[in-house]
Every structure is written in C-alpha cells, then in structure tokens.
C-alpha cells in the first residue's frame, strides 16, 4: 500500500502539466486558486489522478480538498480502502 510520502511525488508529476510554466508545486498549493483551473479542468485533473492511482474519488469528498496535501491524503485514504 502506497504511503503519503510515496504518493506525493507521483501527484506532483500528474499535476505538473496543468500548472503554468515555471510554477513550483508545493504541498500547500491551492488547486483551484493557485493553479487557476476552471471547473472543466478540475474534472480533467481528477480523471487523470483517478486513473493513475486506480481509484474513484467520491464527489462528497471534493469540498474538503483544497490543497495538494489534501488531495494526497484523500488518495492515501482511498488506497487503504
């Protein structure tokens, strides 16, 4: 089972194409506010992450995911089942 520290670099790699050139992703990066994603892009990001980690993120959990760290912790939780 992947731990948060193993998930994080993979998450950065997955998110990188959605960040503006030169933008440095951090755990505290806010996904919508800082990456400037619109609602369609958010869905694209989520689909990519879901396929990468072979999980489905419930819609109910999305309001609690603001930062990269929140997303990493959610992925860890889902992978643990």
């Amino acid at each position: 089972m992947m731990s948060y520290s193993e998930i994080l670099p993979q998450l950065f790699d997955t998110l990188k194409p959605f960040a503006k050139e030169g933008f440095r992703l951090k755990e505290s990066t806010e996904l919508v506010a800082e990456l400037g994603l619109d609602s369609l892009q958010v869905m694209q990001v989520l689909l990519k992450i879901e396929d990468h980690f072979d999980i489905s993120i419930p819609l109910n959990n999305l309001p609690n995911i603001r930062t990269v760290k929140d997303l990493g912790e959610e992925i860890e939780k889902l992978l643990k089942g």
Partner: peptide
C-alpha cells in the same frame, strides 16, 4: 444522491467502460 449520504461517484457520460472500471475499483 446528496440527501441520502452515500458516496457519490460520477462516471463519464454514456461510457460503459468507465462505469465498469469504477465498479471494479469498488471491489
């Protein structure tokens, strides 16, 4: 769906392969 409190997962519109993938993930 929200009112019931179940976990809500969306699959791609009319995409049976995506639906099946998500069912498989649920175990």
């Amino acid at each position: 769906c929200r009112l019931g409190g179940a976990d809500i997962i969306r699959f791609k519109h009319n995409d049976v392969a995506d639906l099946e993938k998500r069912l498989r993930r649920l175990g």
